[in-house]
Nucleic acid binder design. Structure first.
Length: 203
DNA sequence: GGCCAGGTCAAAG
DNA sequence: CTTTGACATGGC
């Protein structure tokens, strides 16, 4: 997700998790409006969302699409996180192991592999690679592999990355940027695109 | 008006 | 285990 470059404060980490849930199959611009609505409504905290009436939460999330589904899942996410992690997101995420955090996040309704990895990487600074539609599409169009599962792609990309967490973060950001510019669903890869020169060396 | 956007889940083959 | 449909708004 774009726009997550601030320090990992309690509040910031929570916002990253909210953004990760809201951006599922949705343009980021629509998510930003919803995040802004949450801030304006004084709802940007696990406790506030956990106790917020569903209709009000749905209204705040409207612009992010699938708003009924997302409101229910976000509220439940907050309720459970509060109940099971009274120490807060910062302590929770920083003390968790990468695998432990990932599998725990996966047990929440509405948190699939990509969302779990996004939260772990961007909010928890864990060394876990995020596989999204762009990453797969770029990988397929470059002929790196075809029809791999999420775990398959993840293993492939992680195998080509060094130990630095920051690289995971920047590498993914780079793939997204390249994807937006050259690897849209309806935009075929063309001879002039720089993908072969940029990705070819990294993978 | 149609297509697409940094997915997830449940049901069915 | 793979495929399919539902979920919904906003920009181009």
């Amino acid at each position: 997700m774009p726009g997550f470059y601030g320090p990992l404060t309690e509040r910031g980490m929570f916002e990253i998790c909210v953004g990760a849930l809201l951006t599922q199959n949705t343009a980021w611009a629509n998510v930003e409006k919803a995040l802004e609505a949450l801030w304006r409504g004084g709802l940007m905290s696990p406790a506030k969302i956990a106790s917020c009436p569903l209709p009000r939460l749905e209204k705040a999330l409207r612009s992010s699409g699938y708003f009924r589904q997302k409101a229910g899942r976000l509220k439940e996410f907050c309720r459970r996180a509060l109940a099971e992690h009274k120490e807060g997101f910062e302590a929770w995420f920083s003390s968790a192991s990468p695998e432990g955090l990932r599998s725990e996040l996966l047990s929440y309704r509405g948190v699939g592999p990509e969302t779990a990895d996004s939260m772990a990487l961007y909010a928890g600074a864990k060394r876990t690679f995020v596989i999204d539609a762009y990453t797969r599409r770029i990988g397929e169009r470059m002929g790196i592999a075809r029809g791999l599962s999420y775990e398959g792609w993840k293993g492939l990309f992680e195998g080509g990355v060094g130990p630095d967490v920051k690289v995971y973060n920047e590498y993914h950001a780079l793939l997204v940027r390249l994807g937006k510019d050259f690897c849209r669903k309806s935009k075929p890869l063309c001879a002039s695109c720089p993908l072969d020169k940029v990705c070819g060396k990294l993978i």
